[in-house]
């Protein structure tokens, strides 16, 4: 399945947060939107990504002060992205090799969505169901 098809199903909304806001604010955004990562932005545009993993790591290293710290202290600045024309199989490879669960989708220099490992697994399920339906139709047609 193509990234563009996944985005059609889930929408192109990307949740972002200012780099000086707190880790707790980022966690609240994740809870509200039911997501596992938010993009971090500053005046220049997107400058990082912060995930549930980053928050858990901040709690591990900082303890009590983690929630008040700014998201920029725990965010990942090396952002790996994908394109709408990429296939979900390629994203699986990318996520496995880079050990990440979220990929912002870029098209013509613009941010057009976010794809998570959960979306990829869901896409694979849809493919399995479509294959199974096609097979059933084929078998029904041949008797």
């Amino acid at each position: 399945m193509l990234v563009s098809q996944i985005l059609k199903a889930k929408g192109s909304q990307v949740v972002t947060i200012e780099r000086h806001r707190s880790i707790r604010d980022a966690a609240e955004l994740m809870t509200t939107h039911g997501i596992g990562a938010v993009l971090v932005r500053d005046a220049g545009g997107t400058c990082g990504i912060v995930s549930e993993r980053d928050i858990a790591r901040a709690v591990a290293t900082e303890g009590e002060s983690a929630a008040r710290a700014a998201v920029e202290t725990t965010m990942t600045t090396d952002i790996v992205t994908c394109a709408p024309t990429d296939k979900s199989d390629e994203l699986m490879t990318l996520m496995t090799h880079r050990r990440i669960r979220h990929l912002p989708v870029m098209s013509g220099g613009e941010l057009v969505g976010m794809v998570s490992i959960g979306d990829i697994v869901k896409a694979r399920l849809t493919e399995l169901e479509t294959d199974s339906e096609a097979l059933k139709t084929y078998i029904a047609g041949s008797i």
């Binding site: 880790i23 707790r24 966690a27 609240e28 994740m30 809870t31 596992g36 549930e52 993993r53 928050i55 858990a56 709690v59 900082e62 303890g63 009590e64 002060s65 983690a66 929630a67 008040r68």
Partner: peptide
Amino acid sequence: SERDIARGVSRQGARIAD
């Protein structure tokens, strides 16, 4: 899970570490 920890930070802030 990491998600539970992030949810905890979201609801209770700094205190959840302890």
